[in-house]
Amino acid sequence: MEKKTSIRDRVSQVTWGWFSISMATGGIAVLLYNTPHRFAGLETIGKIVYIFNLVLFKAISLCLAIRFVSRRAALKGSFQHPNETHFIATCPLALATIILGASTYGTPACGPWLITALRVVFWIYVALSTLQAILHNWYLYHLHLASKQPFAIPRLLPSFPAMLSGTIASVLASHQPAHHAVPILVAGITLQGFGFVMSLFIYAEYFYRLNKDGLPAATERPELFIAVGPWSFTALAVIGMAEGAVQKVPVDWLISSSSPESLSSIAPTAAQVSLILASLVAIFLWFLAFYSLCIAILSMFSLCRVFGGQGVPPMSLPWWSMVFPNTGFVIATIRIGTVLQSEAVLWVASAMTILQVAVWLAVLAATGWLDYNTVLFLTALEMVLES
């Protein structure tokens, strides 16, 4: 008679990487809100996706808590595992999408209390993501875990949550009072710059490895889409923060030492110049993201048997890498189309939105019905709820 699998064994299948499902779903909710060409009921669909993401985040957190409590060595082991340790950052990334969704969907519907609460949450997130970036990266350096993770691109993840502070700031600042918006924008551009420069160090090794060793193994190909993220989120963040600066930054900010005669001619254009520069930088970064996206897509197609490949690998968690970074790319396209006032670019972005939602639904369906570990996760959750 086959031995019944215990709940401990089932829950132990859930890893930190499962938060990539939550952050991808939260990203889709934010994308639906930002889509330029809308129809009646789209915002309601976005709210449903956002609430679904909250349920996902809580369920994954619950299963991880059970795993770590029932197996004392599991938490330490997750930090020391050369692959799982890099995906610990998906937890704060999922939290970032929840904050973004709360701001986009909640601010128009709630009172001033939510604006204050989001401001407090932002500073807590900044503090925690900064500590996480410093301590987690130091930990990886200390244990030489990079040498045990030959594929370079997942090493972007420990610095990614701090970088997303800039994206959060670009959304929150426009709703905050001016005296609170300015520090938020300063913190956002600071951490956005930190995360972007840290990603450049990883990009150097990433492209070097592609040139030297060729494409990664088939099971790692979906992770190539992670390279789209830093370019895209930096592009959309700098435009969003510049737009926030136009609305909230005082006219004499940073040039208050100028003479009164020159102040009147210079001050009104300071924030506008920042928006122009941010738009040009975003366009530059957008094409780098597009290049990385094309490399990843071609790498996946080359696995198909119809193109002479050995076949696409079975569904696994790395497939979720095709959702969140690409969502940032679509939103960056929307932001660029908006500042350029280009209806053509916005229609392209709307088409990209449809494709991105289709990819999310396809990966979600494959995860729910084809992945064995997901079946274990759902079974474990059902047993927990019944107990």
Rank of each mutant, 00 (worst) to 15 (best):
T5C: 10
S6A: 07
R8L: 08
S12A: 12
S12T: 11
Q13T: 14
S22A: 15
A24K: 05
T25K: 01
A29I: 10
L31E: 04
N34I: 09
P36L: 12
P36T: 13
I45M: 13
K47A: 09
I48K: 05
I51W: 15
F57L: 15
S61D: 01
L75A: 12
F79H: 05
H81F: 12
I88S: 06
A89C: 09
A89V: 11
L95H: 04
L95Y: 08
I98E: 07
I99M: 13
I99H: 04
G111T: 13
I115Y: 02
R119E: 04
V120F: 13
A127Y: 07
A127C: 13
L128E: 01
T130W: 05
A133F: 07
Y141N: 07
S147V: 10
P154D: 08
R155K: 10
R155S: 06
A162Y: 00
L164T: 11
V171A: 12
A173D: 02
Q176R: 01
A181G: 06
I184T: 13
I189V: 14
G195L: 06
F196D: 00
V197D: 02
V197P: 00
A204W: 07
K212E: 13
D213H: 15
A218H: 11
R221M: 14
G229I: 07
S232G: 11
A235Q: 02
L236Q: 08
V249T: 12
P250C: 15
W253G: 04
L254W: 11
S256K: 14
S256A: 15
S259Q: 10
L263I: 15
A271K: 03
S274I: 08
L277F: 11
S279V: 08
V281M: 07
V281K: 00
I283S: 03
L285P: 00
Y291W: 13
S299L: 06
F301P: 00
L303T: 08
F307V: 02
G309W: 03
P314H: 15
S316R: 14
P318D: 09
P318A: 14
N326G: 07
G328F: 10
R335L: 11
V339S: 06
W347G: 02
W347E: 06
A349I: 13
S350Y: 03
L355Q: 08
L355M: 14
T367L: 09
W369R: 12
T379E: 09
T379I: 05
E382A: 12
E386N: 08
